[in-house]
């Protein structure tokens, strides 16, 4: 039996989510669904980043009494956590920006399907 580590499981799951998101971006025609696919891709990338920072049997990098009992270095890498923490909020803002573009497109073209919007095609 193959031993699957947590890092492997998390990064593989993140890759799966990223592929699903890319597939959605490439194949969907409804702009709202494209935005949803984009957030799925976002989540996959976050999972990969957090998974890379995992240390075997590590706990949260917060120095308190419980950690003192375990030994100081038995924590996960704090740097990917810090990066993902801000990336989630930025992702939220970017999603809101995309949704406001969708609102404007709908108000102008009265459709959400990108096939109907031909002005930008060549």
């Amino acid at each position: 039996m193959i031993q699957v580590t947590i890092t492997q499981a998390m990064t593989a799951l993140g890759l799966l989510l990223a592929i699903i998101g890319l597939w959605g971006i490439l194949t969907r025609r409804n702009i709202i669904r494209i935005i949803i696919a984009f957030t799925i891709l976002d989540t996959g990338v976050h999972l990969i980043m957090v998974g890379l920072g995992y240390v075997t049997k590590g706990t949260a990098p917060i120095l308190d009494g419980e950690l003192a009992a375990l030994g100081t270095l038995n924590v996960v890498d704090p740097v990917p956590s810090a990066l993902v923490l801000t990336a989630i909020v930025i992702g939220l803002a970017v999603t809101a920006l995309m949704l406001s573009y969708a609102i404007r497109l709908y108000q102008t073209y009265h459709t959400l399907s990108i096939d109907e919007i031909k002005e930008m095609k060549w």
């Binding site: 890092t7 492997q8 990064t11 998974g51 995992y54 240390v55 890498d77 704090p78």
Partner: peptide, 15 residues
């Protein structure tokens, strides 16, 4: 992704 080995201890700047 699959070849990613889990880190046993922290290294570099994280340490």
């Amino acid at each position: 992704v699959w070849g990613m080995q889990e880190a046993r201890t922290l290294s570099g700047v994280a340490r």
